[in-house]
Design a protein around this nucleic acid. Structure first.
Lengths: 175, 175
DNA sequence: GTTCCTGCAAACTCTTTGCACTGAG
DNA sequence: CTCAGTGCAAAGAGTTTGCAGGAAC
């Protein structure tokens, strides 16, 4: 498992600042309320996944979520986390991003956090950074007009080299 | 294996038109010459992979390449194709693109074909379309200036919905 | 004659699926 | 009580690795 730490290099709207626990708990609670409102079952596993995602601004892969959620719900199974994030994704509570390599990463949907952003990933070090949500607005317009393609810019990470890796030794194994 | 047919919806410079065999053969030959010039071994497997990629403008995954190259070099092994495209990639003769789902797809590097482009992939139908190479130039500039990130815009496909799928039933299982 | 490539088998990562059981509503 | 969610085992896709044999130079 590669870890998937974000840098927030150019975070858009600074959302939930350096707040310790209160704001995050509200996020999880809001997610749970929404679950209930949608007529979905509120289970320990889903609670835990929401809480884990609410407690961080990092981009967590399923294994990361499992590791943290297992503390809350011991014995939680990886498959269950896959199913939970899928369900929560279908409901619009959780969003996932596909990096060019490695597992998909998850975070709370901007509709809950109020802070939307896109992702870039360094091919060399694998670090995922947030970039402003409007970065691809112009590109989306062009694609829509020219070929009728509706860009979903948050669904795949853009790739390249981060500042550090671009500066470093240019010959290493990029993927 | 999902098949990976490009649409050339907005192909940039029309490169090698509707030419049957001559232009493509030259491309493969150029690749082989380059291989030799770089002091790399020219093996049947590498020849075949180059020829397969030179003979199409589609985006082929390893299995596609294998299926076509196996006709030229019977018994060719999948592993060998993986290693060939990796080597050819390191040498700058072949480029690969990571769609958000499914296997990486390969094509000859623009330095050989003279026709560079980026890729968008429909989340619903999986179709990969080419889009103009300069689409992300502005975005690349912004990323470089703002966070020092060197975008490699051809390395990951942008995702969204193609015209047909966007028009169709909006509730299906997107990935 | 070396060195590098190839084929094969096996492993590895990430993810999905089928089935019996249990717990939420 | 019922149905949906869970755990477990297994399988699936895509890719990588180790090693012995063979071909390129």
């Amino acid at each position: 498992m590669q870890d998937s730490r974000p840098t927030d290099a150019a975070a858009p709207d600074a959302g939930a600042e350096a707040d310790a626990g209160a704001g995050q708990r509200d996020l999880a609670a809001a997610g749970i309320a929404e679950l209930r409102a949608l007529g979905e079952r509120v289970t320990p596993a889903r609670r835990a996944v929401l809480r884990v995602l609410a407690e961080t601004s990092e981009h967590l892969c399923v294994d990361d979520v499992l590791a943290r959620a297992d503390v809350i719900v011991p014995g939680l199974h990886r498959t269950t986390v896959y199913r939970a994030v899928e369900t929560l994704g279908d409901l619009g509570l959780v969003t996932h991003v596909h990096p060019d390599h490695g597992p998909a990463v998850y975070h709370l949907d901007p509709s809950l956090t109020g802070s939307s952003h896109l992702h870039v990933r360094c091919r060399r070090c694998g670090e995922i950074s947030d970039v402003p949500a409007d970065l691809l607005d112009g590109v989306a317009d062009r694609l829509a007009r020219q070929i009728g393609f509706q860009l979903q810019p948050d669904h795949a990470a853009l790739t390249g080299l981060c500042r550090a890796c671009a500066a470093a030794d240019p010959a290493d194994d990029p993927r």
